[in-house]
Design a binder for these strands. Structure first.
Length: 460
RNA sequence: GGCGGCGUAGCCAAGCGGUAAGGCACGGGUCUGCAAAACCCUUAUGCAUCGGUUCAAUUCCGAUCGCCGCCUCCA
């Protein structure tokens, strides 16, 4: 398998630290609001990636933090006149609800910042003791000058960063680029004790502490949205490597933005759609398929029209699987060449768009074989080939977690169809049409083909 | 100003040195008693523009134009 690494800006062969195991850390939500479809791109992408890694035989450990203490949470609490911890609790619960609605598996570990303070303090202490961090009036700061590799991940050099810096210069800091590891308490704000004074953690330190604790100092893959490359991941890397004197992360995976009308969807622009709203109109599978329809590193433009188009494709897959399920026979002990193409596509920097194209091709073959068309690459018994395709399509859909859910047609529908077939033989078309309408009203589409009648549960 | 990305048919989207996957839409047709979100065909001598390298470029290099993003909280 090969993956693009933000650090090297190249696609590299993926080699895990421990053979057969993959340790992944992805930055999770700051719980001050519901998450939107753009945020869910990262969650969905890593969830699908996790599924694929398992399919490829890896044991996966996936850690994703929950930032439950932060300026935005404090501000929201002030605005609403409630406790900051109530805000954190409310939106943590909402996050878990929404994740479940999206059929995203919860991480193996979901550490909360407020429960990991000791680990963060230990890390900060190391940095202070070694002189990489210093204590100022407002908090404890990481001194960027002391970490020569600073800027490598985001491909910036210090001078340019300093020139471009739009940050207000804080006289208490040695450099505008230095960032807070620990912020001393301001009146009315939550705080924890520390050797340097009461305060709360800076934003970046939690990920460094948690990834070390739950994965290891050096782990395989660190991911998140492309907007985290700088400063968040750059800072994490600086802290961790300065403290541990070990390589922090082997592969950095960054997911592109979801746009609306060509512009990044973001909470500050207000051009977002909450997952809890869109999920009312589209199934988790359709939304996931929409997200997977573009390569993860590029942008994807959200619009109802684009999701609608994907939904039609999804419906086609569902209908074909329903048709296949109604054929008797067992899958033979072999696979179509599509499985290999599918793996090849995903092995090359997780190209889900290409993989989806392969699913469609398999679906198309199945449709044609059902009609009794000859396709050169399929030899032998048609039903066996169809059952093979059914098994393969299901396999691919399961890996991508876009499996259509459907049940066998209900008994009443089957009876009616038998009756319709009888009427057709008797050329009693009037009666047949009446019965057809009855089946339609049960929510089924009917197809009469040479291979037989198919009863398909209609997707709305 | 620095850094990064993008520009492929009406729309979405792969491909990234060897002659344009796939999806949606449109149009034409076929099967069918009638149907079918059933099937077939059609749709880019062309991949923003202009140059260059090469036997060969959408793919590499350079320039130009346009769009977007990061450099400030952001997935």
């Amino acid at each position: 398998m090969r993956l693009y690494n933000t650090l090297s800006q190249k696609i590299e062969e993926f080699t895990p630290v421990t053979p057969g195991e993959v340790k992944i850390y992805a930055c999770g939500p700051t719980v001050y609001n519901y998450f939107h479809i753009g945020n869910s791109r990262v969650f969905t992408l890593f969830d699908t990636f996790r599924s694929y890694l398992r399919y490829r035989g890896y044991k996966v450990t996936f850690v994703q933090n929950i930032t439950d203490i932060d300026d935005k949470i404090i501000n929201k609490a002030k605005d609403e006149g409630v406790l900051w911890s109530d805000i954190a609790k409310q939106y943590t619960d909402a996050y878990i609800e929404d994740i479940k609605k999206m059929n995203i598996e919860l991480p193996d570990v979901s550490p909360k910042a407020t429960e990991e303070i000791p680990g963060m303090l230990a890390l900060i202490k190391k940095l202070v003791d070694e002189g990489t961090a210093y204590v100022s009036k407002n908090g404890v700061y990481f001194e960027v000058e002391k970490f020569p590799a600073y800027g490598e991940l985001s491909h910036q050099n210090l001078e340019e960063l300093q020139e471009g810096a739009r940050v207000d210069v804080d006289d208490e800091k040695k450099s505008g680029l230095d960032f807070a590891l620990w912020k001393f308490t301001k009146p009315g704000e939550p705080s924890w004790e520390s050797p340097w004074g009461a305060g709360r953690p800076g934003w970046h330190i939690e990920c460094s502490a948690m990834s070390s604790r739950y994965l290891s100092n050096t782990f395989d893959i660190h991911g998140g949205g492309a907007d985290l490359v700088f400063p968040h991941h750059e800072n994490e890397r600086a802290q961790s490597e300065a403290a541990n004197h070990e390589r922090f992360v082997n592969y950095w995976m960054h997911v592109g933005y979801m746009n609306i009308d060509g512009e990044k969807m973001s909470k500050s622009k207000g051009n977002f759609v909450f997952v809890r709203d869109i999920i009312k109109d589209y199934s988790a599978e359709v939304i996931r398929m929409f997200i997977l329809s573009a390569h993860y590193r590029g942008p994807i433009d959200f619009s109802r029209e684009n999701v609608e188009a994907v939904k039609k494709g999804y419906t086609e897959i569902s209908y074909t699987l329903q048709r296949l399920a109604q054929l008797d026979g067992a899958a033979p002990d072999k696979k179509s060449p599509y499985i290999k193409s599918f793996i090849d596509a995903l092995d090359e920097d997780f190209n889900t768009a290409k993989a989806l194209g392969i699913v469609y091709e398999a679906v198309n073959d199945a449709k044609n074989l059902i009609l009794g068309k000859k396709i050169d690459k399929y030899e032998g018994d048609i039903k066996a080939n169809l059952k093979m395709l059914e098994s393969d399509i299901k396999e691919m859909a399961q890996v991508l977690k876009i499996s259509p859910k459907f049940e066998a047609p209900e008994a009443k529908a089957k009876e009616l169809v038998k009756e319709i077939e009888k009427m057709r033989v008797e050329k009693n078309y009037e009666k047949a049409d009446t019965l057809k309408k009855e089946v339609n009203s049960l929510g089924y589409l009917l197809e009469f083909t040479k291979t037989g009648a198919f009863i398909i549960k209609e997707l709305k």
